[in-house]
Design a protein around this nucleic acid. Structure first.
Length: 216
DNA sequence: CTCCCGATAT
DNA sequence: ATATCAGGAG
């Protein structure tokens, strides 16, 4: 487990590495962000960003997603994968937006997490990115990085990781740090090929120390 | 826990 | 060939 001082070192180093880290899903409004995040489950942002420009040109309101057949929506998102579940969820989600929220994306976590296809991670991304509320969305990168660094334990659930991060990181740093951890996981501490030899966090990283020993 | 799933990197 | 990708529902 990292000491408070080492947590501080991690936050400062990540800020230095990725001062402007932000959401990389292209979007122009709350609805586009919500749809993009739902689509991004188990897919890369790069792939989602290839599909959404055309998608958002065709679908501009929740009604637009309802007024086509399920098969047509499936075809429009097929390349992203998990397209049957995602198409079904997006239709239900848009129906609920119209019925319960006057066609708008609600700005609170509890409303968002009850929408079809929206879980804890997606709801946290939307409140953080669209509505500027402090949040830590734990995705595959945040989970892996937290565990490798030793901020939490490998056996911890996603929810436990989130609670630990919220406890150890000052609230005003939640959102920027969450984006920086994603950048770090995506571009430096990748799942298959983490760049430990050139990592500025190596000295305090449990997993990094272990991996560097193996090489010698 | 399993299933959903195509694109990409390794 | 296989692991991985801004997960969520049943």
């Amino acid at each position: 487990m990292l000491t408070k001082k080492n947590i501080r070192f991690v936050l400062d180093t990540l800020e230095e590495m990725y001062p402007d880290a932000d959401c990389e899903l292209t979007h122009d409004n709350e609805l586009e962000l919500l749809i993009a995040v739902v689509l991004s489950a188990q897919a890369t942002d790069a792939l989602v960003n290839k599909v959404t420009p055309g998608l958002f040109l065709k679908y501009k309101t929740p009604e637009d997603y309802i007024n086509v057949s399920l098969e047509e929506l499936q075809n429009d998102i097929r390349r992203i994968g998990l397209y049957r579940n995602k198409a079904k969820n997006i239709r239900k989600l848009c129906a609920d937006l119209i019925e319960k929220y006057d066609g708008e994306v609600p700005n609170d976590y509890d409303a968002l997490v009850n929408l079809a296809g929206v879980g804890r991670k997606t709801a946290n991304v939307v409140v953080s990115v669209a509505f500027n509320q402090p949040a830590i969305a734990v995705d595959t990168h945040v989970e892996r990085v937290s565990k490798r660094l030793g901020i939490c334990r490998y056996k911890d659930s996603v929810l436990e990781v989130e609670k630990t991060l919220m406890r150890k990181i000052p609230e005003e740093e939640w959102s920027p740090t969450h984006h920086r951890m994603i950048f770090f996981g995506r571009y430096h501490c990748q799942a298959k090929t983490p760049n430990c030899p050139e990592c500025p966090l190596l000295e305090i990283c449990r997993e990094g120390q272990k991996r560097m020993k193996k090489r010698s």
